[in-house]
Nucleic acid binder design. Structure first.
Lengths: 202, 202
DNA sequence: ATCGACTGTCAGTACTGACTGACATTTAAG
DNA sequence: CTTAAATGTCAGTCAGTACTGACAGTCGAT
């Protein structure tokens, strides 16, 4: 039977998922091939038969489970050019994507060295978000709906704010209980709307 | 001669600084005691004579070079209860403190496991900032200078935004050139001022 | 000159962890 | 049942690494 054609989780995927899970919490060097195999319910030997080396296991995991890049189009279709609505959509989409890939992000934060081009691909999304949001702000300003500002910097601020909150949640969300992400999104979007929209709420 | 009484950098400190430097970039397990000693211009043996173990080297480094906790007082004296001025001060102070300790922060991000209570102490400052800022927002609201909002969440948003920007700068600031921290501070503070102040700029 | 604190050198120990080879066992397909 | 592919077992290699002991050199102070 050829790799990947199994209906249930295939042997290879079990190993990849276990690797992602453990590396995310303990780091590449902090986890052993034995641990990974055990977590996958397989023998260490099988791990090496499939991937040849620990390094290759990490690379394969990254290639296989890194989020795809279908986001740009999604946006241009869903934006309605009303600041509050759109910022809420963007914020929520951002957190959704980041959360779906939080383990890979954790790994790439800890293991920036182990792979060339690793980090680059991981921050590709944040970068895309900023670009999209920058163009959005510029267009909104052109339409007279926003005051004149440095669009790129505003986009950068907005995304960074969401990034900061995401990381807090990630690396021990227990540090700030009674602060939920959804609540944060609503408050922060409110502030940005009042701070950027022309003649709102005064 | 007793440890620490030297005018120039003492042997112990050389080792501690080298350790911080290397662990920040390569992680605790990614660096060897040999490397650390070599970077400090000393022999491995000396390292062990001073610290006994690699683990103790990390702990000592953390205790010795972790930023102190003299911040709260500083604030209460410097705040002038004018939103823009104060937010600028807070933002700049935050980045100054974080930058002064960026290597320790890097380590604590990568090595959350290796020490109990490690992470807790590292995020103590962000937490303090949020508490201070929360009280500040509440007081400002009471004075009628701010609109009614969820003070804690606003503080959380503001600090998270600065945290996100700081981390970007840290882990490869080359990703977003033409975006300086100072510019960011001015733009973002502007937005928050317009978003929170009562009857401003309309 | 000598003493003492500090550091260097070097050989070596003990352990860990990635990785392999030989052989047995399972499992599904024909 | 037979076969082949996948997996398990187990013993073992090899390199790296934290850490030690014995001995020698340096250097400043008295």
């Amino acid at each position: 039977m050829i790799e990947g054609s199994n209906a249930a989780t295939s042997t290879g995927d079990k190993l990849l998922l276990a690797a992602i899970d453990l590396m995310a919490s303990k780091g590449y060097k902090g986890v052993t091939t034995q641990e990974i195999a055990a977590a996958a319910g397989l023998s260490e030997k099988t791990l090496f038969r499939h991937f040849g080396s620990k390094q290759n296991l990490l690379e394969t995991a990254f290639d296989r489970f890194h989020y795809a890049e279908e986001m740009t189009r999604l946006f241009n279709e869903k934006l309605v050019w009303e600041l509050e609505t759109d910022l809420l959509l963007i914020s929520r989409t951002y957190h959704e994507i980041m959360n779906r890939n939080r383990k890979m992000i954790m790994i790439s934060v800890k293991e920036a060295d182990h792979l060339p081009g690793f980090r680059e691909r991981t921050i590709k999304h944040p970068k895309q978000f900023i670009e999209i949001l920058t163009r959005y702000f510029m267009e909104m300003t052109a339409q007279g709906k926003l005051i004149e500002t440095n669009a790129q910097m505003q986009a950068y601020s907005f995304i960074s704010m969401n990034y900061g909150v995401f990381l807090n949640d990630l690396a021990g969300g227990e540090h700030f209980p009674n602060l939920t992400v959804e609540e944060f999104i609503m408050e922060s979007v409110g502030t940005f709307v009042r701070g950027l929209a022309r003649q709102a709420y005064c």
